[in-house]
Every structure is written in C-alpha cells, then in structure tokens.
Simulated scan of single mutants.
Amino acid sequence: MTLSPSHRPPLVEEVTAKLRYSIQSGEWQLQQRIPAEPELVAALGISRGTLREAIKALAHSGMLEVRRGDGTYVRATSEISGAAQRMYRDHSQMHILEVRVALDTQAARLAARHATDDAVAAMRELLEVRRSAWLARDFAGWAQADWDFHVLVAQASGNPLLHELYISFGGVFHSDLLRQQRRGGFDGLPHPGHGELVDAIAARNAAAAVESVHRNLNSCAEWLGRA
C-alpha cells in the first residue's frame, strides 16, 4: 500500500486500519522494522500523537512490537496471530503440541482433498531444502524449511482460517525445533510426518495423511517426555 497524505487528521481507527493493511498486504514483512515515526507522520499527514495511538493499538493486539531505542517491528500478520503468540508464552511445549495435533490432523486431511499438483511439488522442494540444510549443518535454514513445509500443508488445506491459526505457531514452533536440535540424538530428517505425508497428499489418501501426522507428533511427544 502506498501511504498518501490525508487532508484532515484522520481518526486513530483510520490510521490503525492503514497500518494494519500495510502489514497484511505484505508491504511490511514479519520481523522487519516499520518506517520511522517522522516518515509515517509525513506520509500520512497526521500528528505524532495520532500515529502513536495507532501503533499502540496494534502493539496491544500483538501485531507490532515497540522496542525502545530501536524502533517498531512487525510481530504478527493479524490480531488473531498476535493474540495466539502471547498466549503460547504461558503454556508448556506439551500443551502446544497437543493443540498442534488437532490443527495438523485437519490440515493433512483437507490437503489430501484440495492440494494442487503445484502445491505438492512445492512441498517436495521444501523437504529437499530442509534435507540439504540439515546435512550442511545449517540448522536455522533447516528449521525454517521445516516450518515453511508445515505452513504450506495448512495453506493447501484450502481453509484460510486454519492457515492463519497455524501461522500463529510460527515463533514457538521455530524456537522449539532449534531447541530440540541441540539435544543429543535428535533426528532432523525423519521420513514419517514429512515425506510420507506428501506421498499421502499426492495420492489423495486422507486417512494415510492423518496417520502420518499422528506418527510424527507422537514421536515428538515421546521426545519431549524424555527431556
């Protein structure tokens, strides 16, 4: 979205909506710093007070994070994602995993029905990126590819709300993967739940896709139990 000056000072709600759109449209990317206050004030033709109120509202919803002395960063792409991330901090890894069982199972079932050939091909490409990163000991790249794979399965479900809910796991999921990787004996390239899941989705076999998810997450639960 191109920010344009307003002829009158807009209401805080109007400015909030403009900032929200800049996030949701992808103009302002996740984890990136938004334009500095003077730039936004000039672009929107508003007062500093109005802008700060709008930023405060989006920070309260979890979409923005104000870092004193550093700027304001995009933390989530929607209010639901921001709220979810705040809630996850108050729960254990096992609680989060139990919720993931429900989301992953439904995502796999629906993806087996609705995924396009292009989506399946993209899943296989991500698994290859994931494999290459693990073998190269690029653990950050491995974790990112693993997360991108799961998000793509959720997107392939054809249910935008399920996709958005799944995205809300982003920060928690990524940090958990890296924490597990640092433990001795961790296998970063298990076939169950990944390669088998793509095979099931490609075959339009919803039951096999769900079973693959259960095997993978049961293995994760056992791993956490040994922590």
Rank of each mutant, 00 (worst) to 15 (best):
D199G: 02
R67I: 15
Q180M: 12
G62K: 02
Q93F: 00
N216H: 15
P190Q: 12
V120K: 06
G45H: 03
D104V: 01
K18E: 07
F186V: 00
A156N: 06
R86G: 11
H163G: 01
S47W: 12
E128A: 08
V210P: 11
A227T: 05
S78M: 00
L19D: 03
R52L: 12
A36M: 12
R113S: 04
S132T: 03
T77R: 03
E125G: 09
T77A: 03
G158R: 02
Y88T: 01
L177P: 04
Q32W: 00
L178H: 01
I167W: 08
A43I: 03
D70C: 03
L51M: 00
D117E: 15
I23L: 08
Q106E: 15
A208W: 11
S212E: 01
A115I: 06
R113V: 11
L58K: 07
R109G: 00
R52I: 00
S81L: 09
A200P: 15
V120D: 07
A203G: 10
L97G: 03
L51S: 00
A209L: 12
D187L: 03
G225L: 15
Q181T: 05
E196D: 10
R124K: 04
V151H: 10
W142D: 14
A209N: 08
V12N: 04
S4Q: 15
E65F: 11
G188M: 08
V101E: 12
A84F: 06
W223V: 09
R33L: 14
N218L: 09
L19R: 01
E14M: 05
R113Y: 10
S6H: 15
L110C: 04
A107M: 05
G158V: 06
A209V: 07
R48V: 13
E65A: 13
H114P: 05
E37H: 09
Q155P: 03
W223R: 15
L165Q: 15
A209G: 10
V74A: 08
Y166E: 11
L40I: 05
V15E: 02
V120P: 11
R52F: 11
L152A: 04
G82H: 07
E39G: 04
G184T: 07
Y21H: 14
A42R: 07
I23N: 04
L3S: 10
L224M: 05
G185W: 06
H150E: 03
A154E: 01
L178Q: 03
P192L: 05
P9T: 14
V213A: 09
A154K: 02
Q180N: 13
A209Y: 07
A42H: 06
A59S: 13
S175F: 08
F173M: 04
S157R: 10
